[in-house]
Amino acid sequence: MKSIIIASTSTLHGGSYLEYLLPTLQNHFKDCKTILFIPYARPGGISHDEYTKKVSEAFTVININVKGIHEFESPEIAIENAEGIFTGGGNTFLLVTQLYKNNVMQLLAEKVKSGTPYLGTSAGSNICGLSMQTTNDMPIIYPPSFQTLGLIPFNLNPHYLDPDTNSQHMGETRETRIKEFHAFNSIPVLGLREGSWLEVKGNMIVLKGSLKARLFKQNQIPEELETESDLSDLK
C-alpha cells in the first residue's frame, strides 16, 4: 500500500529544516532505521554530501539514519534496497534529468507504489504528479521527458503563492501560469501553499497542514480546499 508525504516545502519561515514535519515523519518512517536520500535536485552551491548531511541532522532528531543515493555504486540497487526514501528540493528539471540519466525514474515509481514510504518536498513533490510541467523552476537543463512518477493522478504546484494586492508587479501570477498550462492540458493542478502537504495511504489522498490548497481544473473556476479535504477521486 502506498505511503507518501508530499509537502510544499521543507522549511517554514522561522523554523529549521523539516522541523514542522518531524512529528508526521516520525510516524511515517516508523519502521525505518535508515532512509535513502536523493539529492539530485540541487544544482550548485551545496554538494550532494553537504545536502545529505543537512538532511541527516534533521532526521537525527527522530532517530533515523540517512544515506545519500550518490554514496552507492549503483543507484538502482540503492533504491531496490531502501527502507524509506526522501527526495529533496532544488530544481525539478535537474532532478528529473538525473533520475532518467541514472535509469531510476520507473524503478522509483514502482518501489513507492509497492509500499516503501516516500517523502517529497518541493522538487521531490513535483515529481509525484503525472508530469513536472507545473513546476515553478527555471529550465536549466533539458530532461529526456516531462513525465514523472505518477504516484497521484494529478499535477502539483508547490510553493503556491496568492497574488499580492499591495504589489506593483504586473507580471504573471501563479494562477495565470497554471491557466496557461490548462490551455493545452486537462490534468488538474493542486496549488500547495507553504505548510501544507498531501498524505497518501493506498488510494486515499488527504490534504494536511495549516493552510488551504487551491485546486485548478481546465475551464473551471479555481476552488479553495480546506485542510482534511479528500482528493482521492481527483483526476
Rank of each mutant, 00 (worst) to 15 (best):
H28P: 01
S74W: 01
K33A: 12
H48N: 12
N65G: 04
I38N: 06
K53Q: 14
K53H: 15
P23N: 11
I46A: 15
F59C: 04
V66Y: 00
P23C: 05
E19S: 07
F59A: 07
G68P: 09
S16A: 14
H28N: 05
F29C: 06
P75W: 00
Y51F: 13
P23Y: 11
T11Q: 15
P23Q: 06
N81T: 02
F29T: 00
K30D: 08
I38Q: 02
I64D: 00
A41Q: 02
Y20C: 02
N65S: 14
V66K: 02
D49T: 12
I69K: 08
I85K: 00
E57M: 11
N27D: 14
C32E: 01
K67E: 14
P43A: 06
T9V: 10
S56P: 10
K33Q: 13
A78P: 09
E73D: 13
R42K: 14
I85L: 00
T24E: 12
G15Y: 10
G84Q: 01
G44Y: 01
I62Y: 11
T24Y: 06
G44L: 11
G44E: 09
S16W: 05
G68C: 08
H28D: 05
I38C: 03
T24R: 14
A41I: 04
S74G: 03
A41C: 04
A58V: 08
F86A: 00
I62F: 10
E19W: 06
E76G: 06
N27Y: 12
H48L: 05
H48Y: 12
S10G: 08
K30W: 02
P39Q: 07
F29G: 07
V61N: 13
S56Y: 01
C32V: 03
F72Y: 15
E83Q: 11
E50N: 11
G84F: 02
H48C: 05
S16V: 11
E71P: 00
A82I: 01
A58R: 10
H28L: 08
S16N: 13
L18M: 12
I46F: 09
Y17M: 08
E50G: 11
I79A: 02
H48T: 03
V61L: 10
A41T: 08
I77Y: 09
H13K: 15
N81R: 06
A78T: 04
K33L: 11
N65H: 13
I62D: 05
E71I: 04
F37Y: 15
T52Y: 01
E73V: 11
L22H: 10
I79E: 02
A58F: 13
V55F: 11
N27T: 12
I62Q: 07
N63D: 14
Y20R: 05
N27P: 03
L36S: 09
E73Y: 12
E80Y: 01
P75D: 01
Q26E: 15
Y51T: 05
V61G: 01
I77E: 15
I85Q: 00
P23D: 11
L18G: 06
I35D: 05
Q26R: 15
N27L: 13
T11H: 03
H28V: 01
E73I: 09
D31H: 15
G15D: 10
L25C: 05
V55M: 10
L36C: 01
E76Y: 02
G68W: 00
A82R: 05
L36P: 04
V55H: 07
V66C: 12
E73P: 00
E83M: 03
G44R: 10
L36T: 10
K67Q: 13
V55Q: 03
K54W: 01
S74D: 11
G84S: 06
A58D: 10
Y20G: 04
S56W: 00
T11W: 05
T24M: 12
